[in-house]
């Protein structure tokens, strides 16, 4: 599968995850979000950027339980809970937000 972004074709797998992490840009993120029916606001970006930082540090896309805990630690308990995160990303914060962040499918996502 491929995604058209600004006249360029970006390769994704059959579930819509980027084939190559280095293809990611904010425009690519917006294009993936559109496919996922998500209207990106600053709260969405905050989670997406958090995931990208986490991946850079640990080379892994965290499972939702780990993401929730880590976000709570960094951004406060009002954001580190699954209700808040599922409101932003209804089909699963780890799955959807990781996809928009250009990361692989989370490890430990069962």
């Amino acid at each position: 599968m491929a995604l058209e972004v600004g006249g360029k074709s970006v390769e994704t797998d059959e579930e819509g995850y980027l084939t190559s992490l280095s293809d990611w840009s904010e425009d690519v993120a917006k294009a993936i979000a559109k496919v996922e029916n998500i209207d990106m606001n600053e709260n969405h970006w905050e989670v997406v950027n958090f995931l990208r930082d986490y991946y850079n540090e640990f080379q892994i896309a965290p499972a939702v339980r780990v993401l929730t805990k880590a976000i709570g630690k960094k951004l406060g308990p009002e954001k580190g809970n699954s209700q808040y995160l599922y409101e932003l990303f209804p089909y699963g914060p780890a799955k959807q937000a990781c996809k928009i962040a250009g990361l692989p499918k989370p490890t430990g996502c069962v």
Binding site: E57, F58, Q59, I60, P62, V66, A70, G108
Partner: peptide
Amino acid sequence: VKNFQPTYRALDDY
């Protein structure tokens, strides 16, 4: 080859 060593530091989160 992917360097997966940083991931050992995430084990505590898990």
